[in-house]
Computed example of a mutant assay.
Amino acid sequence: MKIKRHTRIFAGLLSLLLSLSLAACASNTETTNADSKFKYGRIDIPGKDGALCGAPIYIAYDKGFFAEEGFDVNLISADAETRKIGLNNGTIPIVNGDFQFFPSIEEGVNVKVVDGLHNGCIKFIVKKGSSIRTAADLKGKKIAVDEIGGTPHQVASVWVEKAGISAKPEDKEVEFLVFSDGNLEIEALKKGDVDVAALWDPLGSIYTTGDNAKDYEVLFDLSTDPTFAGKYCCFLYASDKVIRDNPEKVAALLYAYQKAQDWIAKNPKEAVDIISDKKYSAIEDKALAEELLKSYVYPSAEDRAANRQDVGKDVEYFATELYNIGYLKTDPAQFAKDAYYKVDLKLGK
């Protein structure tokens, strides 16, 4: 009886193990089949911050441009430090960002500028009828920013320095006050605690259009000011590790982004509809969002063919401006040479 009982137990265990093994094989087969749809497999791309200027990410994801180039993209939330760590170790292959990233490159973050993303997305606003009309009028004034060293702060510093005003705190020619939220900047401006609010879009545009136009007006627009107009303010940054280990992967990613940029340039209204309806970004005024997308001048295929903007020259230009105000220590030409990597797009075909 004991032998028969043990035999039955053994047979049951054998059957169970066989079932689990078959299930595992089936699961592995399903995973392999799923992965085989994408040449480069699953990757993480930061794309959940809701910024309108991140439109190419949303469109490349939604229109299937990432998938067409062989990527199963997972959009993630990631702060600046998470992005830097991911780029350093290659777990995040690519991010979009402005020239605020330049000091990080100088400090040793292993990342390269690989393409331009768009022009302008920052505005400085003042109270309606303010006596402040130019950068020269900012001497002795207070400017609200989101962080010291952040892009609005750097842009404002470059702007006033070009007007002959020192942006260095020790010179006390202009004062920067930090607020954790753009709406708090507006409140400070309203109360008279600051003279200027340096804001990311869409807030800068929201507070200077419609009913708000009676209270506030634009002093500076990054997309049209002569110091910055016609230049990429935001770039695509790729992991140096991924560039070295898998350059064709980076080339394929750029193809997906460039398809999205071209599509946005030619279909701004439809792009806003997708971004709004799919909740990629919180948009209340679609007409305003459409105008903003147009102002960012996402490069079309024709723009690229005509070489209307030069990524390497724009990197050197902003490196020079940041060098002049003390935010970079490296010679700008050398910095641009080291920081910009021209991807051979033929590798992605």
Rank of each mutant, 00 (worst) to 15 (best):
K241A: 02
K241C: 01
K241N: 02
K241T: 08
K241G: 03
D245R: 08
D245T: 10
D245Y: 03
N246T: 11
P247S: 05
E248Y: 06
K249F: 08
K249T: 14
V250D: 08
A251P: 04
A251G: 05
A251R: 03
A251Y: 01
A252N: 01
A252K: 13
A252Q: 02
A252H: 07
A252S: 15
L254V: 10
A256Y: 03
Y257F: 15
K259M: 11
A260Q: 06
A260M: 11
Q261G: 06
D262V: 05
W263A: 10
W263Y: 13
A265D: 07
K266R: 11
N267H: 14
P268S: 10
K269D: 10
K269V: 13
K269S: 15
K269C: 06
E270Q: 14
V272T: 08
D273R: 13
I274Q: 11
I275H: 11
S276G: 05
K279N: 15
Y280V: 12
Y280E: 10
Y280R: 15
Y280C: 09
Y280L: 12
S281C: 14
A282D: 13
A282V: 12
A282Y: 12
I283F: 11
E284C: 04
E284Y: 09
E284M: 07
A287V: 09
L288F: 05
L288A: 05
E290W: 03
E290H: 07
L292D: 06
L292H: 04
L293V: 09
L293W: 07
K294D: 02
K294L: 09
Y296F: 15
V297Q: 14
V297W: 10
P299S: 12
P299A: 09
A301N: 14
E302Y: 00
R304I: 12
R304V: 13
A305T: 12
A306M: 04
R308L: 14
R308N: 15
R308S: 12
R308F: 08
Q309F: 10
Q309L: 14
V311N: 10
V311E: 09
G312T: 09
K313Y: 04
K313R: 10
V315G: 01
V315H: 01
E316V: 06
E316Q: 14
A319L: 00
A319D: 00
A319Q: 00
A319E: 00
T320L: 03
E321F: 01
E321G: 03
L322S: 01
L322H: 01
Y323N: 05
N324P: 02
I325N: 00
I325W: 00
G326L: 02
G326T: 02
G326H: 01
K329S: 14
T330K: 12
P332I: 07
A336N: 08
A336K: 08
K337L: 10
D338W: 03
D338H: 02
A339D: 04
